[in-house]
């Protein structure tokens, strides 16, 4: 079934203790009544707690599709989402991933007021995806973090974000379907790696991003290593 590609070496005793401590910490939530927003089943093993924690921020580097993938499950569950600072967003890919356009709000050019815009959006929508035009300072990030906790919203930032609950990045990307002068792009396999700030333990998974059906899915063994282009 769903197997992680990165195979870890046999853990030593110290690592085992650290791992168990991290699991205990994960179970002890930061607040008693922490709410969760659903995460895509392909992404949940990469996220601490297996879901998007209400009131936390996530950082995504290297892929717009992966950042949009974080929005898919909350949107499918009926939550409102907002995208800030991305004038070049491809709406076709957004719809293809299964995000409901009726409940998606775009603020393409927030300009210098982007922090105020993000704060205002956190008040009303559940998930805010932002590409910060400038690197956010510690003070700004903690102001936003306080607001996220109060409103129980989730922030997904493209690029660096101070004290993100988890930082996701992609690597080892390979497209299928395209050859030297023939075929067309059909899907892409990437390794999505995640570093959780509290446990500090990295996790990685091979995913279709996007798959042949435009959606996100884990790479399963039987078609796992097929990266040669399809010939028509």
């Amino acid at each position: 079934m769903f197997e992680a590609v990165a195979v870890e070496p046999e853990p030593t005793r110290a690592e085992l203790v650290k791992d168990l401590q991290a699991r205990i910490r994960r179970m002890q939530r930061s607040r008693l009544d922490t709410h969760e927003l659903p995460a895509h089943p392909a992404l949940s093993p990469l996220l601490p707690g297996g879901a998007l924690m209400a009131g936390s921020a996530y950082a995504v580097t290297g892929s717009t599709t992966l950042a949009l993938g974080m929005l898919q499950a909350p949107s499918a569950a009926g939550a409102w989402c907002a995208v800030v600072g991305m004038p070049d967003l491809g709406v076709g890919a957004v719809a293809g991933l299964g995000i409901d356009l009726e409940r998606l709000v775009l603020v393409p050019q927030p300009g210098r007021q982007w922090l105020a815009v993000v704060s205002a959006l956190i008040d009303v929508v559940s998930v805010v995806l932002v590409r910060p035009p400038a690197s956010p300072g510690e003070a700004a990030a903690s102001r936003i973090a306080a607001r996220l906790r109060r409103r129980e919203a989730v922030l997904v930032a493209i690029g660096e974000w101070p004290r993100a609950t988890a930082a996701l990045a992609i690597g080892d990307s390979s497209w299928t379907g395209l050859g030297a002068g023939f075929g067309r792009l059909t899907g892409r396999q990437v390794t999505v790696s995640s570093t959780a700030s509290r446990s500090g333990r990295p996790a990685a998974r091979r995913l279709w991003l996007p798959g042949p059906d435009q959606a996100l899915s884990p790479v399963t063994q039987n078609i796992g290593r097929r990266s040669s282009p399809s010939v028509h």
Partner: peptide, 10 residues
């Protein structure tokens, strides 16, 4: 045909 590009340059 799909997939559509996630970034469409305005």
């Amino acid at each position: 045909p799909p997939p559509a590009p996630a970034t469409v340059y305005a």
